[in-house]
Structure formats: structure tokens, C-alpha cells
């Protein structure tokens, strides 16, 4: 008998957890349980074109619903999975990037100096890249403040300070979001041609970008890794932006399910893209000579031959390889006309 009681104790414990001893059950509990239970039935009636027994003067989505159980499910999902999951994923990727940078990237040598340079990105292209990058980082920061702020910042700053930060983040995020979409479309229009598949892309992949095998790789303006990054940024960025617009304009009749789905696409896409961009920043810093193309526009000739051999050969054949002096002259740092000359 005692053994039986011991084995069934958890069941009694579960029951007693719902109704602690000494506490009287709320007399309205049954009423509200009934209201919650009937909500799907009412929705089904409404979808069938029958208005159902609930009437309200407030016209809008879900206005005839007194309790929506999905809201609580979504809240729990966000708190139990979305916030900790994104925190672990982005934190892990950031830690990995820092470790790789300290262990590997710092030891990689810069390209051999040849005294020659190639124009890789024009002014407009560099401006577009950094314009989009600035918007992306701003949106990423404000988005993460909204996603993680409650568990991370409230214990540090307190509720009043976090309230102001959250309000500012929300306004800034909502305002800059559509501008990011415009920058993404401009970016796509400028670069999509150079990011189409070319012969040799899979050879690059098979040799892991030159990590395996010997001999030069014949790579065009972008390698397959960069092309994948481009399409990820464009397609995931587009999905984030469109989902963001669904969230930004809730006045088009979209209900809770659509809003939750948009929230999920928006958050998961943004976290994925942030992780990818962390990798992109690492590669730009690790492979010496890469970042110069996106800051000053010109790259070292030996860097181009090593990483984008086919493009370097084409540029050289077209006679567009410049000396360092010519590049400095174009930047206004040096005059090519000798003193006293004409």
C-alpha cells in the first residue's frame, strides 16, 4: 500500500500544484475556462460567414474574442526558445569569430607588395555597401535590444531606463527598416549580374576556396562563397523586410497567426543574417588586402591574382592595372606632374 502511494505520489503532487491547499479556487475560473474553450468555435462560425453569438461594436481582427490562448503560447515560445536560442547562436558565432581571429587571422600574412593596384569597387558601389551596412548594423542593434533587452538590460539598468531605450529602439527600428529595404534593392540592382553562376564556381567549392589541392584557382570577380553571401543577404534580407512591413502595418486585417509568423520570419532571418554577417566581417579582416577594396576601392595586384585570378587577368588584359602613384594621384594625394613641368 505504501509502495503504491509512493509510486502515485507525483500524480497527486501535480494535482496539488494546480490547486494549492488552503487556496479557494476563483469562482470565475469555470466561466473564463468556458470562454477560452469556445473561442475556436466562434472563430469557425465567423469563418463560415456566421457571426456567432458574440457581438461587439468594435470592428477589427479578433475583437469578438475575449481570450486568445495563442497569445500566451507565443509569449512562452518567445521567452523559452526564441530569446535564449538567438542569444546562444549569436553569442557562439561571435565567440568563434573572435577565437578564429586571434588564433588564425592575426598570423596570416598580407599580400606581397607589387607596386600595382586594381580598381575593385567604384565609389558608388562602396557607398552603397557601407550605406546598407550602416543601416543593417543599426537595425541589428535596435532589434537585438528589443529582443534581448528585457532579460539582459532590465537587471542592469532598471525598468525606467530600459523603457526609454526600448521606446527609442522601436521608433528607430520602424523608421529605418523601410530605408534598409530601399538600400537592399539598390544593392541588388548593382551587383546581381556579377553574382550569377560561372564556370569554375564548383571547382572553387570542391577545393574549399583553395584550402585543398595545389595550383591557382580560376576565380572571377566574386568566388562562390561571396556569391552565396550575396544571395543570402538579398533573399533573407528581402524576407526580413517584407515580414517587417507586415509587422509595421498591422492595419491591413492580418490576425495574430499572420503577425506571429511574420515575427518568426523576421527574427529568425535577422539572427541568421547577423551570424552570416559576423562571418563576413571576419573574412574581410582575416584575408589581408580584402577590406582595402571596399574602403579605398583599390586592391593589391598580387591579392587579386591569388584570390580572383580570372578577374585580375581580364583587368590586366584590358590595361586597367595602375601604379601606386597613379592611384594616389587619382585620390588627390600626389601630383603626377613634376614640379616646373607643364
Amino acid at each position: 500500500m505504501l509502495a503504491l502511494l509512493w509510486l502515485t505520489a507525483p500524480l497527486f503532487a501535480a494535482v496539488s500544484h494546480d490547486k494549492p491547499p488552503g487556496l479557494v479556487e476563483n469562482p470565475g475560473t469555470d466561466l473564463w475556462r468556458e470562454v477560452r474553450r469556445r473561442a475556436p468555435e466562434l472563430q469557425a462560425l465567423q469563418q463560415a460567414g456566421k457571426r456567432g453569438p458574440v457581438r461587439t461594436q468594435v470592428q477589427g481582427v479578433d475583437t469578438t474574442r475575449l481570450i486568445n490562448a495563442r497569445g500566451e503560447q507565443w509569449r512562452l515560445y518567445r521567452h523559452r526558445w526564441l530569446i535564449p536560442g538567438s542569444l546562444w547562436l549569436l553569442g557562439g558565432v561571435a565567440a568563434l569569430v573572435v577565437l578564429l581571429y586571434l588564433a588564425v587571422a592575426l598570423r596570416l600574412p598580407p599580400p606581397r607588395e607589387s607596386g600595382r593596384r586594381l580598381l575593385r569597387f567604384e565609389t558608388y558601389e562602396r557607398t552603397l555597401h557601407w550605406f546598407m551596412a550602416a543601416l543593417f548594423l543599426f537595425l541589428g542593434l535596435t532589434g537585438l535590444l528589443l529582443l534581448w533587452g528585457r532579460p539582459l538590460l532590465i537587471p542592469l539598468l532598471g525598468k525606467p531606463a530600459f523603457s526609454a531605450i526600448a521606446s527609442a529602439s522601436k521608433e528607430g527600428h520602424n523608421l529605418m527598416g523601410p530605408v534598409f529595404l530601399v538600400s537592399l534593392l539598390l544593392f541588388f540592382a548593382r551587383f546581381w549580374r556579377r553574382n550569377l553562376y560561372q564556370r569554375g564556381d564548383f571547382a572553387w567549392l570542391a577545393r574549399l576556396g583553395g584550402l585543398l589541392g595545389r595550383g591557382p584557382l580560376r576565380v572571377g570577380f566574386f568566388n562562390l562563397g561571396e556569391k552565396v553571401l550575396f544571395w543570402l543577404v538579398v533573399l533573407v534580407g528581402l524576407a526580413i523586410s517584407l515580414a517587417g512591413l507586415v509587422l509595421l502595418f498591422p492595419n491591413f486585417g492580418q490576425g495574430r497567426v499572420v503577425m506571429e509568423a511574420a515575427h518568426l520570419v523576421h527574427t529568425l532571418g535577422a539572427v541568421l543574417l547577423l551570424a552570416v554577417v559576423l562571418g563576413h566581417i571576419y573574412m574581410a579582416k582575416a584575408v589581408k588586402g580584402t577590406l582595402e577594396g571596399m574602403t579605398g576601392g583599390y586592391v593589391e595586384y598580387n591579392w587579386a591574382r591569388e584570390h580572383h585570378g580570372a578577374w585580375a587577368a581580364d583587368t590586366e588584359a584590358a590595361g586597367r592595372v595602375l601604379s601606386v602613384e597613379e592611384v594616389e594621384s587619382r585620390r588627390g594625394q600626389r601630383s603626377l606632374v613634376k614640379e616646373g613641368g607643364t
Partner: peptide, 21 residues
Amino acid sequence: TGELALGGLLFLIVYRLMNPV
């Protein structure tokens, strides 16, 4: 208007830094 103005200004700031002239 805020989006247009802020977007335009941010673009100009980046352009000023990126254009050697």
C-alpha cells in the same frame, strides 16, 4: 519625410567618406 531625409543624409555622409575627391 523622416525616412527620406535620414536616408539621404546617411547616403551623403558615406559618399563623402568614400569619394576620394
